[in-house]
C-alpha cells in the first residue's frame, strides 16, 4: 500500500510534537549560531539548525562537501553539553517525544 499525505488532523499534531516540541535554544560558545536542542536522556540529543545559525558556524562552513560534510561541529557539541550541565536544557522525555 502506498502512503504519504496525512489524512488525519491528529497526524499534523504528531508532526509538531515530534519535530518541534520541547526544543530549547542553545547558543554556541564559540560563534553566533543558536540552535534548538532537545535531550530525552543524558546521551540522547536532537539538534535543529536554521539557515541563519548554519551560516554562522565557521567549522561547518569550512567543510568541502562529500563525505566530511556531515559530522557534528565539536564546538557546538561542547556548548550543548555545557548547557545541559548548567540545567539550561532539561533532560528527560515526555510521552516518547
Amino acid at each position: 500500500m502506498p502512503s504519504f499525505v496525512p489524512t488525519s488532523a491528529d497526524t499534523l499534531e504528531d508532526q509538531r510534537l515530534y519535530t518541534s516540541a520541547r526544543l530549547v535554544e542553545v547558543a554556541c560558545l564559540d560563534c553566533l549560531a543558536r540552535v534548538g536542542v532537545k535531550k530525552n536522556s543524558e546521551h540522547h540529543t536532537s539538534i535543529q539548525w536554521t539557515a541563519e545559525a548554519r551560516g554562522h558556524c565557521p567549522e561547518l562552513n569550512r567543510r568541502t562537501g562529500g563525505r566530511d560534510f556531515q559530522p557534528a561541529c565539536r564546538r557546538l557539541v561542547a556548548s550543548i553539553e555545557a548547557a545541559a550541565r548548567d540545567g539550561q536544557v532539561p533532560i528527560g522525555a515526555e510521552d516518547g517525544y
Binding site: 540522547h44 540529543t45 536532537s46 539538534i47 539548525w49 536554521t50 539557515a51 548554519r54
Partner: peptide, 12 residues
C-alpha cells in the same frame, strides 16, 4: 526551509 535545514540526532 525545515525540509533542508540541518538536523542532528543521536539515539541513546
Amino acid at each position: 526551509p525545515e525540509m533542508v535545514d540541518r538536523f542532528e540526532f543521536e539515539v541513546d
